[in-house]
Simulated scan of single mutants.
Amino acid sequence: MFSTAIRRVTPSLRQQLRPRIATAAAAHTQAAASAAGAATVASAPSKLDEGEQAIYDKLSERFQPSELLVQDVSGGCGTFYAITIASKAFKGIPVVKQHRLVNEVLKKEIEGIHGLQVKTVPL
């Protein structure tokens, strides 16, 4: 009975997530290209809300990333952010320390939010 309910929900859920999956796939492809040696610097997206822009600016200034994606995934209320950042600053540093570097830069912002998802990519 439980698996039947899941099968009924899955197609509609898949349809709802399709735009996000496509966006994530495009970001992943771009990050892979950057990691493969493209020496590009991330350009600021045009549609960031105030919280996303503050995070974007701080991370850009500190890490000069080739890829930076900051997304408010809390439905626009600014309580949970997902960040993907690719930078030479992470090269040779363990993942835990990479995340600590990001958290240190965003210390003030983290105080006012409930959650933060960080994905770092060393170049």
Rank of each mutant, 00 (worst) to 15 (best):
A26Q: 14
H28E: 09
P19L: 08
S46C: 06
T40R: 08
A31C: 06
Q15K: 13
A27V: 12
V9A: 13
S46K: 15
I21E: 04
A27N: 11
R18N: 05
Q16A: 13
A27Y: 02
R20L: 13
A42L: 03
A38T: 08
A39C: 05
A33P: 00
T10P: 00
T10H: 03
A22N: 10
Q15G: 01
L17R: 04
Q15A: 15
A44H: 08
A33E: 13
P19T: 08
A22R: 11
A36Y: 04
S43P: 00
Q15T: 05
T23A: 15
A33M: 13
A38S: 12
P19M: 10
P45Q: 09
T23N: 09
Q16E: 12
A35N: 04
L13D: 00
P45N: 07
A26F: 05
A25Y: 06
A39N: 12
P19W: 06
A27S: 12
R18C: 01
P11V: 03
Q30D: 13
P19Y: 09
P19N: 11
A36Q: 11
A32N: 04
A44M: 15
A44K: 15
Q30T: 10
T40A: 11
V41R: 12
A24I: 06
T29S: 12
T10I: 09
A38K: 10
A42G: 04
A24N: 07
V41T: 15
V41H: 07
S34F: 09
A35D: 06
P11N: 03
A33N: 11
R18H: 07
T10S: 08
H28W: 06
A26P: 00
A25C: 03
R14C: 02
L13H: 01
A38M: 11
P19R: 09
V41P: 01
A42I: 03
V9D: 04
R14T: 10
R20M: 07
S43D: 13
T23P: 00
A39G: 05
S12A: 11
Q15W: 01
A33L: 15
I21L: 14
P11I: 04
